[in-house]
Amino acid sequence: MPTRNGSARYEGLGKDGKGWVSTQSGALSEQPYGFATRFENEPGTNPEELIAAAHASCFTMALSFALAGAGHHDGSLETSAKVTVEKDGEGFTITKSALDLHAKVPGISPDDFDRIAAEAKKNCPVSKLLNAEITLSITLDA
């Protein structure tokens, strides 16, 4: 299995510092980040939104493969993730990743879908990595 990597560079310290994050694939290349992009909604990225994107994409792919493995071959899945960061003493802790799934899978029962989605949430590699509460809300269109 491949090992993937990303990198970050930070110049200056604390609130005055500026950072840049890149990914091996080049999908992110020197994307700015720092205190203002993380806590003050300035343009750029931040670790929490990157984790949210990773969790949403990982879960959605895991669910897609699980549904295919259960014999379903058509449908659409759209997942958003909201990652919560909270003050924790002198620092911060990521406390939650809330997945919100909107799905359309013709011919699947709501019970079967809920069971398969719960397993995908549990078994997605990013879910296994996170040490935070992970929730899942589902909208299944007929």
Rank of each mutant, 00 (worst) to 15 (best):
residue 128 K to L: 00
residue 5 N to V: 13
residue 85 V to A: 11
residue 73 H to T: 15
residue 70 A to F: 05
residue 138 I to K: 14
residue 75 G to H: 05
residue 78 E to W: 00
residue 75 G to Y: 06
residue 110 P to K: 10
residue 62 A to T: 15
residue 94 I to P: 03
residue 134 I to G: 03
residue 47 P to L: 02
residue 88 D to L: 01
residue 32 P to Y: 11
residue 132 A to N: 02
residue 126 V to S: 01
residue 3 T to L: 13
residue 60 T to Y: 01
residue 32 P to H: 14
residue 133 E to H: 07
residue 107 G to R: 03
residue 77 L to T: 09
residue 48 E to Y: 08
residue 82 K to D: 13
residue 130 L to P: 01
residue 127 S to K: 10
residue 10 Y to D: 06
residue 29 S to H: 15
residue 128 K to P: 00
residue 60 T to Q: 11
residue 122 K to M: 02
residue 12 G to K: 11
residue 25 S to V: 12
residue 80 S to W: 04
residue 33 Y to W: 15
residue 72 H to F: 15
residue 102 H to R: 13
residue 54 A to R: 05
residue 76 S to R: 15
residue 52 A to E: 02
residue 112 D to S: 14
residue 4 R to P: 03
residue 110 P to F: 11
residue 121 K to Y: 02
residue 140 L to A: 10
residue 142 A to T: 09
residue 83 V to G: 00
residue 93 T to W: 05
residue 104 K to C: 07
residue 20 W to D: 05
residue 33 Y to M: 12
residue 42 E to I: 00
residue 44 G to I: 08
residue 35 F to W: 14
residue 77 L to M: 06
residue 2 P to Y: 12
residue 32 P to L: 12
residue 1 M to F: 07
residue 100 D to I: 10
residue 49 E to S: 10
residue 37 T to W: 03
residue 131 N to L: 10
residue 76 S to W: 08
residue 106 P to H: 02
residue 71 G to E: 07
residue 59 F to S: 06
residue 39 F to D: 01
residue 136 L to H: 02
